[in-house]
Design a protein around this nucleic acid. Structure first.
Length: 326
DNA sequence: CATCAGGGCCCTG
DNA sequence: CAGGGCCCTGAT
């Protein structure tokens, strides 16, 4: 399929809550690379499907940590109307947590022996989820029981087959598919793309969105218990995926009830300096996080996690390499 | 070469 | 509620 050239440009200015670190907030070295975004210091490109319209976003840092300013350019095939833009900007503000107030978190943990220094290194960093709930679910499914390399490969093939290729600002990227775009795919067709048994999960989760059984916007205002129940009710979505989604998509920055084995090994080394082959029990880790970081467990762990992966990116962390299978 | 365990989840007993 | 099976792939 020939890429769609996104030639029309709309511009907006975003004023994130201070403090705000552009690069730590807009680039996450632990996220696997996908075909819908690109980053260089001070700039993030990110495609998006909003109300069925493929878009190319370009975020540019135009301020400082204490005087945050982000220049946003939105590329589209046709010019965008003001109402559409208003809705889009509200959605972007939500997904990127630009308005998240970090002040209380910063004050509370400034002198925490472990977290304090990490906050200092990444002052103004906030969590990032660029995806819709549906998109995140698809990512969660390709992450399951697979190495990073394989997850990247599955995403790429799915993007090529069901996504929309676009070009904007000199970049060639894909916009992730909508539920409708993949709804007609048979299980055999999906299996042909080497997603294996995940084909069934992809189909059934997609079905739940096409039929309106699940509605992201409505879910946002529901209780966490209801959100969890809705997620676990989806075929192929279990506690690990639900945990990621509750914190990343629904922004429960105190969510911390599930730790998968590979994370358990990393946390054991990171927080207790234990041999990853003989990790601390999950219950011990959960108790530690609750006691130390409540009510910011997920946010606090995010700081440690990003600190670790930025370090890996710039100077390498030998013990970590064995624990993340690339 | 063959076997095995993954950045889980479903299903069965 | 414990454990086997599942698609594929790289590691051993």
């Amino acid at each position: 399929m020939n890429p769609i050239g996104l030639e029309a440009v709309s511009r907006a200015e975003i004023l994130p809550a201070a403090p705000f670190s552009f690069d730590a907030s807009l680039h996450k070295p632990d996220h696997f690379s996908s075909d819908d975004d690109a980053w260089q210091p001070g700039i993030r490109w990110q495609t998006m499907l909003w109300q069925g319209v493929p878009l190319g976003c370009k975020f540019e840092n135009a301020g400082g940590v204490d005087t945050p300013r982000v220049r946003l350019s939105i590329f589209s095939a046709e010019p965008l109307g003001p109402a559409f833009l208003d809705g889009l900007l509200a959605e972007i503000d939500y997904r990127y947590s630009f308005s998240l107030d970090l002040v209380e978190f910063n004050v509370r943990f400034a002198s925490h022996p472990r977290l304090g220094p990490v906050i200092g290194r990444w002052f103004g960093m906030r969590p990032l989820n660029v995806n819709s709930l549906y998109e995140y679910l698809m990512v969660a499914i390709v992450l399951q029981n697979a190495t990073v390399r394989r997850s990247v490969q599955m995403m790429h093939v799915l993007d090529e087959r069901y996504g929309t290729p676009v070009t904007y600002d000199g970049r060639a990227l894909y916009v992730m598919w909508s539920p409708e775009a993949i709804a007609g795919a048979t299980e055999e067709e999906l299996r042909g793309l080497k997603v294996g048994y995940r084909a069934k999960s992809i189909r059934r989760v997609t079905e739940a969105f096409v039929t309106g059984q699940i509605d992201e916007h409505a879910l946002r205002s529901h209780s966490r218990a209801e959100q969890r129940q809705a997620l676990l009710g989806l075929y192929g979505i279990g506690p690990a995926s639900a945990e990621y989604i509750l914190s990343d998509v629904f922004h429960h920055i105190d969510e911390m009830v599930h730790i998968s084995p590979w994370e358990q090994r990393i946390y054991s080394k990171l927080f207790f300096d234990r041999d990853p082959q003989d990790p601390a029990p999950v219950s011990e880790l959960l108790t530690y996080f609750d006691e130390q970081f409540s009510p910011y467990q997920a946010l606090a762990v995010h700081y440690f996690w990003e600190d670790l992966f930025w370090r890996r990116k710039t100077e390498s962390v030998p013990w970590l390499e064995k624990l993340i299978r690339l």
